[in-house]
């Protein structure tokens, strides 16, 4: 073999090892051996010319399909679509329900505070009523979440959208809940090979991957919180001073602190769970 051929064979092997990593042994070995055979046949075919370049081109053009195949094979191998709904939802409710419950109760409390102490002349009532409606919808969603996960999640999402619309500062918090609602309610869908829409249960992603994604969201929320903190003095109403603080000021700060804490707590828990998951997975593989 020429130097170019050796290089391209090594490249194809490395790429095959990389994108089949972590797949089931039979799937992995089959793809690697098939590629090994294909490249050998290609390089030894008397009809083919400029073979190293041609092999490289085939390798390069096939990368997107390889990546999609890996993703699909991972989903299939986890068999989540064949699992019962109860099995996939149980673990989610362990943390999601209390978290959203705390958020819902806090929103309600803030809304009631607004009703009691809001400044009528500055539109405090409108904000407070909006929050209250949002909170009622949110809590109603939470109430039906266990029995009717999809309906409950959509209701939670509707409540969060209302919440976000009523108070722009609540958008990070709303985003957190909405993402959780999408996740919890099994509303994210995928398609199987035949193109049929199938619910994408959370277990179709590994726990680690999901928590890393969640950590990313948490970091984003923290960043938004910092931006809010930086621009807040510029948007504080003139009549709100340190000596005479307004209700909006206090509520906004409370909202911001809540969302920031939620982000930090979620991220921290995510890191711990991700670490645990890695250990468990490693041990499982060894076994």
């Amino acid at each position: 073999m020429t130097g170019g051929e050796t290089l391209v064979v090594g490249l194809v092997r490395c790429w095959a090892r990389l994108y089949t990593r972590g797949l089931a042994v039979d799937e992995r070995e089959r793809r690697r051996l098939e590629l090994e055979s294909d490249v050998w046949e290609h390089l030894h075919d008397p009809d083919e010319q400029a073979t190293s370049r041609a092999v490289f081109g085939r390798f390069l053009r096939g990368i997107p399909a390889d990546v999609r195949w890996r993703y699909r094979t991972l989903l299939d191998s986890r068999g989540a679509r064949h699992r019962s709904y109860d099995m996939t939802t149980t673990s989610r409710f362990q943390w999601w329900t209390p978290t959203t419950m705390v958020i819902g109760v806090t929103v309600t409390a803030l809304a009631l505070l607004g009703l009691g102490f809001g400044e009528l002349e500055s539109g405090g009532w409108i904000i407070a009523v909006s929050w209250l409606v949002a909170a009622v919808v949110l809590l109603a969603g939470l109430a039906v979440l266990r029995r009717r996960p999809v309906v409950g999640s959509w209701t939670v999402i509707a409540g969060c959208v209302l919440f976000g619309l009523a108070e722009p500062l609540a958008i990070p918090l709303s985003a957190l809940v909405i993402l959780g609602g999408l996740w919890t309610g099994n509303l994210v869908t995928s398609h199987d090979e035949a193109g049929t829409k199938v619910p994408l249960a959370p277990r179709q992603f590994s726990l680690t991957e999901r928590w890393y994604a969640w950590l990313g969201v948490a970091a984003g929320l923290g960043a938004v919180g910092f931006i809010v903190l930086l621009v807040w003095p510029a948007v504080t109403p003139d009549h709100c001073t340190e000596a005479n603080p307004c209700w909006e000021d206090t509520a906004a700060w409370a909202t911001w602190i809540l969302s920031w804490m939620a982000a930090l707590v979620t991220g921290g828990v995510g890191l711990v769970l991700a670490g645990l998951r890695l250990v468990v997975r490693h041990r499982t593989r060894l076994a």
Partner: peptide, 15 residues
């Protein structure tokens, strides 16, 4: 002019 790419071909065959 070109052969089907590795990824495209074997993904289709598997499917």
């Amino acid at each position: 002019q070109r052969l089907t790419a590795h990824g495209t071909l074997y993904k289709a065959l598997t499917r």
